[in-house]
Design a protein around this nucleic acid. Structure first.
Lengths: 214, 214
DNA sequence: AGAATGGAACTGACTGGTCAGTCCTTTATC
DNA sequence: GATAAAGGACTGACCAGTCAGTTCCATTCT
């Protein structure tokens, strides 16, 4: 009994320590993968940055590949978390949407290295069925669709398929994230959110043309 | 004189032949790069596919890197060309825009391997100042801005910055191209164009909400 | 016409360097 | 002192790029 308890204690201590170390490795690995790209990242260099033997890394992750994929998953977890924090407690659906969009864009604007990781993932692991981003997207998108549906029911958005909306908005955000990263300038997120909401909410047609078309 | 003429003839013949061969190499290289990714593409395999010695490839391109970048440039040339053909002779600006969007999306939907190449480029050559896609984008976007400007002057689009429009539409198209490719199903381009035009032209707000907001 | 020539195009075995992953030794922990 | 963790030298696979040798072909010579 005492024996078991003690060994449990010991195990849990080392498990905690292990988790901590794992997180350290993931964080540093992510930086290196983002900086040098997957294949140009030498595990030797990673070991040196961590001030650890190369063998140690392989005690935590079975292969370079597994290490990378774990880092990519971590990014998406962090994203979800960051957005959740920002929209928590906001009730007005419009407000919720615009804060959500802002949170998404800021997250990646503040962490360009995460975008790089997503690109690296797609470039190196084409065989995987679906990129991490889209695996997470599927779960997340449902929440947004409910939001839009409630706005339609309230008569604040015109009656149209919510899939159509989330599809277009999702693609727009995805494109914006990449464009921002590729063009390299720190974007003004506020302005971008304004642009997006202005176009998507109001459309670009003039009033006269709008009447003609319907 | 005869000498020069004859040697000119020879030179132009061989130049033609050279160009032809170059094109062959680029086409096959593009397929392999798209299938295996940049670093997993062995130049040896490329040589075998071309039924050519490995050294020959290096007579046409100084390095694997240069070969790849030439292939990426080719993709963007082909894109521009394909869109130009489709919008040629169309006068109505709205029609021109919607056909242009359709042409863009079909081009990449029909050639998913081109999308893969653009991803590979970004993943492997992070040091290059700007990805090929954006280099070409800058030239192309001007034409679209003029189109939108004329529509504003004609009172068919509401008075707003044309940069704002092309920015949003450009990002939306970019995101759509990648999403289509990553999700892997052949998209129904017609439906996508409808979705995009519907949202971007009319906006998603209901009439009552629209009045409120202004 | 047919042979000879020279140089361009092509070839593919080889080299040198790189790096993921292993494994035996050393160090820490209890 | 026994066990677990960490270290880092080592190995073997891999592959871009090279280069010495070969083939091809347009032109010139006989």
């Amino acid at each position: 009994m005492t024996q078991t308890a003690r060994s449990d204690h010991r195990r849990s201590l080392s498990a905690q320590r292990r988790a901590q170390r794992e997180e350290q490795i993931l964080e540093t690995a992510m930086q290196l993968f983002a900086e040098y790209g997957y294949s140009d990242t030498d595990t030797q260099l990673l070991a040196e940055k961590l001030q650890v033997g190369k063998g140690t890394i392989y005690r935590y992750f079975p292969s370079k590949r597994a290490l990378f994929l774990a880092a990519a998953d971590r990014v998406m977890r962090l994203m979800r978390q960051s957005i959740d924090e920002r929209i928590q407690g906001i009730d007005d659906p419009f407000e919720r949407i615009s804060v959500g969009i802002r949170a998404f864009l800021s997250f990646f604007a503040e962490h360009p290295e995460y975008v790089e990781l997503l690109i690296q993932e797609r470039a190196q692991f084409k065989d995987r069925k679906k990129p991490t981003y889209f695996v997470h997207r599927e779960t997340n998108i449902k929440r947004w669709q409910e939001l839009y549906r409630s706005l339609i029911e309230a008569g604040r958005i015109r009656n149209m398929s919510v899939e159509r909306i989330t599809d277009v908005v999702g693609k727009l955000l995805y494109g914006t994230m990449f464009t921002n990263y590729f063009l390299g300038e720190r974007p003004c997120v506020e302005k971008q959110v304004d642009d997006i909401l202005d176009v998507v909410f109001y459309g670009i047609l003039s009033d006269t043309e709008r009447k003609k078309g319907r």
